[in-house]
Amino acid sequence: MRHETGGVVPLSVQVALGASHLIVAIIQGIIAYRGGRGRLPRNHWIGFRGTRSLSSESAWIHVHRRAAPLTWVSSAVAFFTGGAIILLDGSSEWLILTTTLAADSAIIILMIIAWKVGHQGLPDS
């Protein structure tokens, strides 16, 4: 008995999925670069935004400097995943799906850990 392994993902879907990962990588890279140098302005749109990190300029800088290394790693995962998805032309749906799910899970886990590491050493408000 032959088992169906899934169809081929259209190139347009692969490019869109890969491009979205590359955009995430760029945004995370900006956060890591500027945040690691204490040059990411405190705001309500980008960065590790929470009650404690937004409480003061020094808290904001502290969180982003400590979180920068893991944010860089997460950015690299997103970058290489985006490139791989685009280059896997003609690949099965299952390969694209498992690659995307594994990488996105890693990105989320890395960012949660970065959040926790960033907030270590902040005084409770």
Score class of each variant (00 low, 15 high):
S12D: 13
H21Y: 14
Y33H: 08
R2K: 02
L88M: 15
I46M: 06
H62N: 05
V8T: 15
R42W: 03
S92A: 14
S125H: 12
I27S: 02
S58M: 04
H62T: 10
E93Q: 12
G82N: 03
L22G: 08
S56M: 11
R65A: 04
I107L: 03
F80K: 03
V73C: 00
A78V: 15
F48V: 12
A78P: 10
L54Y: 11
F80V: 15
G38E: 01
R39W: 00
S20Q: 06
P69C: 11
L40E: 03
L11S: 08
R66Q: 01
A68Y: 00
S92R: 10
G7Q: 02
A59C: 04
V9K: 12
G47L: 06
H64R: 08
M1T: 03
M1V: 01
I31W: 10
P123M: 02
I27K: 04
G83Y: 00
I23E: 05
S105L: 13
G50P: 09
G6I: 07
S55H: 14
S53T: 14
A102N: 01
Y33I: 04
D89K: 15
H62P: 07
E4N: 15
S91K: 05
R65C: 09
I86T: 00
F79N: 06
R65Y: 07
A32N: 04
S12Q: 14
S55K: 07
T100C: 05
R65W: 04
I96S: 11
R37Q: 13
V8A: 01
Q120M: 11
S12R: 07
T81K: 03
W45T: 09
P123R: 15
A25F: 05
G83V: 11
I23N: 02
I86Y: 13
R34C: 07
G90R: 09
W45N: 05
P10D: 13
A106M: 14
A103T: 08
I31K: 10
H62S: 11
K116R: 11
I85W: 07
T81H: 09
K116C: 02
G35C: 06
I109G: 07
L88C: 09
V15F: 14
A106N: 05
E93R: 01
I30H: 11
S55W: 01
V117F: 06
I96A: 00
G90V: 04
A78L: 04
H3Q: 08
E93W: 14
M111F: 05
W45R: 08
E4K: 14
G90A: 06
E4M: 13
A78H: 10
I46T: 03
W115M: 01
Y33G: 09
W60N: 01
S12P: 08
L88A: 06
Y33T: 00
W60Q: 08
P41L: 01
G121A: 12
K116M: 15
L70F: 12
I107P: 03
Y33L: 07
G35R: 05
L17W: 08
N43W: 02
W60H: 02
G29I: 00
I85C: 02
A16F: 01
G90P: 15
A103P: 15
Q28W: 11
I46N: 09
E57M: 02
T99Q: 10
S74C: 07
